[in-house]
Design a protein around this nucleic acid. Structure first.
Lengths: 348, 348
DNA sequence: CTGTTAGCGCTTTCAC
DNA sequence: GTGAAAGCGCTAACAG
């Protein structure tokens, strides 16, 4: 069995190569100021020993772990996993590893995770705040000597950079689009109305509705298929049933679609549907579903880029980084016109 | 600005508390064998200083980083992100962090990532081998003193534990189900036929087809929607068009479904469809799509459990862990009968 | 119960 | 070009 119980160390390499530890250190750090012959020799020894520098030891001296932490509500959510993938790519390009932790939107879990990440001395943090308002979060983040950037939701009352989608404008566009289709009774369907993103989207809806002098109608009871079915049935059975639905998130859109399908309500003929956030089969179902698309990867990418910029500045100046970015970056959303809003005649 | 440039250290705590470093060390490690009064006092100092132990330093002594590495082809793939989430949960329960890296199925990237993870001295590794056969991978893994478990695909010719779905049996079940429906010309549609999982599924298909004395028909050209459309058109236009399609992976299933929909071919009346691997809207589209479902979370969970068991054994015995698990765990798949195979009369 | 001390594996002056 | 030696922040004997 060639499985060693312990990793070879730098000084073992030095001994076996018959050189000092300094030399080996130089070799593994690029090999400058080392005699080419020595260099080659040491490299050979490193190779045969299978030596790999211990990051912990390097960290203890150099003060960088080459890791960044990502704190998200869930990994198995297309939005966050896409962000994560984009972030991971930037991290690797910056010679760093990505540590992922999940909060399930629980502020306690969030604080816990952050503390662990701080103990690990991650160089930076990208976080989807479980609760944008939490003072505990803000406090911890500001106290700790680690650059942070928030994504999807900002951290209220803080100087923490944030990269988010322009939820308000996206929702306004969506609603306006429905209005342009001449729908008059447009209902906003949603759940989790305490989340920053959802609130923004609700505001965007209100804004468009009001400036068109229509009546805003909210149903914030959607938490699963059952509740969607119930809500839609109630709406439809009521007097003045809606002629269009604006759903503020992925799952709500899908539940609504399923309920409509279940009731055999022709979409968009009897009622139109437009959702916030795109999803994989939105164009495959019939009718295909019109949505507001967020630049998911870009959110992740931009956040990571900003983070590494901060890290870089800091390393250069030794100072906490003078923010040259606007504190909050709002990325544009896009209206994807498919059939459910009435744009394209439903196929098949 | 309360943002300190540097984290407080244990000895700073000791000094400020007027005690020795040992005492502080004991306090942060549970506080055994320390006077309750001292304990409380030190804790207070820790609190006011916002002290958090430096993991790197602890690692350098204790020899554990409390991190595990996950190496996957992609994060933004429902299968892997679900695995990742399950793994992350187990990791956190074991006081460990999850580092995620992605290979895009590129063996070079895989080796690179592994090397970085080894430098970081992750305690253990969970990996989806880019190439099950790669000797370089096997070598590196066996040489390094780190417990590993493979998921989704095994590492050929090695003692490395693997947790996979029973692809062969799943595909056999799927195909047999189609056969039971009395379909006679069942085509197996696929792409990436070099991947372990795909090959197994193809084998499972062959097995069922052959034992029913039917003719196996493969089309391994599916790489995107276009190729699926082309393949299906060719098949349909040929003499003896198929009456059922078995697709070996998610994306293929979807492409096939879309092509069929595009051509207005009634499913399952004209041709049945059964896919390997479930996906989010499989029950929402019309007809709903029958699939073989893999126990995704369980794959991740089991792998993580096995890994931590190994780690635990190792820590206790100091030995490389005597495998008490079968080298390869094949988890059962499940046939989900929906409409596309002909089981349920298509709704609406 | 508590402090002293010697490293863990590496980087980094500072001489040679 | 190269090496000796002093730590980085922490733990773990070993004394008291």
């Amino acid at each position: 069995m060639s499985k060693n119980r312990t990793h070879p160390t730098l000084s073992q390499v030095a001994r076996k190569a018959g050189v000092g530890t300094t030399t080996v250190s130089r070799v593994i750090n690029g090999g400058d100021r080392v005699n080419p012959k020595t260099l080659a020799h040491v490299r050979r020894v490193i190779e045969t020993l299978g030596y790999m520098p211990n990051q912990a030891a390097q960290t203890l001296k150099g003060h960088r772990t080459k890791t960044i932490g990502l704190v998200v509500p869930r990994i198995a959510d297309p939005f966050f996993s896409s962000c994560a993938e984009a972030i991971q790519a930037i991290a690797r390009a910056n010679d760093s590893l990505l540590i992922v932790t999940v909060t399930a939107n629980d502020p306690r879990a969030e604080i816990d995770n952050l503390k662990v990440l701080v103990r690990h001395r991650v160089d930076g943090l990208i976080i989807v705040p479980a609760n944008s308002q939490s003072p505990a979060l803000r406090e911890l983040l500001e106290r700790v000597a680690i650059p942070v950037v928030a994504i999807d939701r900002p951290v209220a009352n803080s100087a923490i950079a944030a990269v988010v989608a322009d939820n308000l404008k996206g929702a306004t566009t969506a609603t306006q689009h429905l209005i342009d289709h001449a729908y008059k009774r447009i209902v906003c369907l949603t759940g989790e109305s305490t989340l920053y993103t959802i609130r923004e989207r609700m505001n965007g809806y209100s804004k468009a509705i009001e400036s068109a002098r229509l009546t805003p109608i909210f149903d914030t009871s959607i938490k699963d298929y059952k509740s969607a079915e119930y809500a839609i049935k109630s709406l439809l059975d009521g007097q003045n049933p809606p002629d269009a639905l604006f759903t503020t998130k992925n799952s709500t859109t899908i539940y609504a679609f399923e309920a409509l399908q279940r009731f055999n309500i022709p979409v968009p003929q009897s009622i139109a549907l437009l959702g916030f956030d795109d999803f994989e089969l939105a164009s495959t179902v019939r009718p295909s579903i019109s949505v507001i698309q967020q630049p998911v990867e870009e959110i992740g990418r931009r956040a990571a880029e900003i983070l590494f910029e901060q890290l870089f500045d800091e390393r250069k100046t030794g100072l906490p980084h003078s923010s040259k970015h606007p504190q909050q970056i709002r990325l544009h959303t896009r209206l994807i016109q498919r059939s459910s809003c009435g744009c394209t005649p439903p196929i098949s």
